[in-house]
């Protein structure tokens, strides 16, 4: 196992209760710098709920979520932070069912990602002073560079809704990248993609990790993808963590096999 840097995300005993349903039951998870970590489990296991808790969309019932951004030298508690503030801290996510801004252009979608790194206010917008103009110009250029990296530059002025499916998935990643994160949370990035698109995605994730130094936490059902890119895998079922380890360890873990294939009956 390669040597990774310090721990940048640490989740301890995270629980989420909806009425009588324990969607998450004391989950522990950690991500180290430069790592690709996968979160897998059967449908309804609570993976997306886990993402929603970390990104501030849900307020978890109990547990701690801590980040220590590589650029800063302190720990920040994510509990109770609003989604936009979580993003500002450097966690960016994509969505399982694509949630692009359909009637905005591809470039504008990415520019929205940079929103929290900009500062122009109402007065700036109206008077369009030099600082604002400079900032706008810079954001347009930076966004275009991101689109080039993700391979979407040819669509720059198209509406997001007119993009092919695979390109929409990649645009979600581009938009998340624009928020300048140190960790990227990908919720089923390969869902609905064909084999070739999945391979391209594999390369893209690898590239993001290598070139940008962004760690990745992903939820995925495509086992081939998960096994090839993950450094570590966490498995959840019915809101409980049932296993964690390297892809090899997970492949042979009896609890994981039981959750995915069902128990052998004695009869």
């Amino acid at each position: 196992m390669p040597d990774f840097g310090k721990q940048i995300l640490a989740v301890n005993g995270l629980s989420m209760v909806f009425g009588g349903l324990r969607a998450l039951d004391r989950i522990d998870l950690d991500v180290r710098q430069g790592e690709v970590v996968a979160l897998i489990g059967p449908n309804g296991a609570g993976k997306t709920t886990f993402f929603n808790c970390i990104t501030g969309l849900y307020a978890p019932t109990e547990g701690d979520m801590l980040i220590s951004p590589p650029r800063k030298d302190k720990n920040i508690r994510l509990n109770g932070l609003k989604p936009n503030l979580v993003t500002e801290q450097g966690l960016a996510r994509t969505f399982q069912n694509i949630r692009l801004f359909q009637n905005m252009t591809v470039l504008e979608n990415v520019m929205i990602g940079r929103h929290c790194r900009m500062s122009a206010g109402i007065a700036g917008a109206i008077f369009r002073n030099r600082a604002t103009r400079h900032e706008e110009q810079q954001v347009v250029e930076e966004s275009y560079v991101i689109l080039q990296k993700i391979g979407l530059a040819q669509y720059v002025n198209d509406f997001a809704k007119n993009l092919p499916y695979g390109a929409q998935r990649r645009l979600e990643i581009a938009r998340a990248m624009a928020t300048d994160p140190f960790i990227l949370l990908l919720d089923e990035p390969a869902a609905g993609m064909n084999t070739r698109e999945t391979e391209e995605l594999d390369d893209l994730i690898e590239k993001i990790r290598e070139m940008e130094g962004i760690s990745i936490l992903l939820i995925e059902h495509d086992m081939k993808l998960v096994m090839s890119i993950s450094d570590r895998i966490f498995v959840v079922d019915y809101g409980k963590k049932i296993a964690e380890g390297t892809p090899e360890e997970i492949k042979s873990d009896p609890a994981v096999i039981k959750a995915y294939l069902g128990e052998e009956s004695d009869a």
């Binding site: 609003k82 989604p83 960016a92 996510r93 969505f95 801004f101 929205i112 929103h115 928020t179």
Partner: peptide, 18 residues
């Protein structure tokens, strides 16, 4: 742009730091 993003998708808009 933030207004339009809010119109298009409120959840995604927040998740993008708005």
């Amino acid at each position: 742009r933030a207004w339009i993003a809010l119109r298009e998708d409120e959840v995604a808009c927040q998740a993008m730091g708005i």
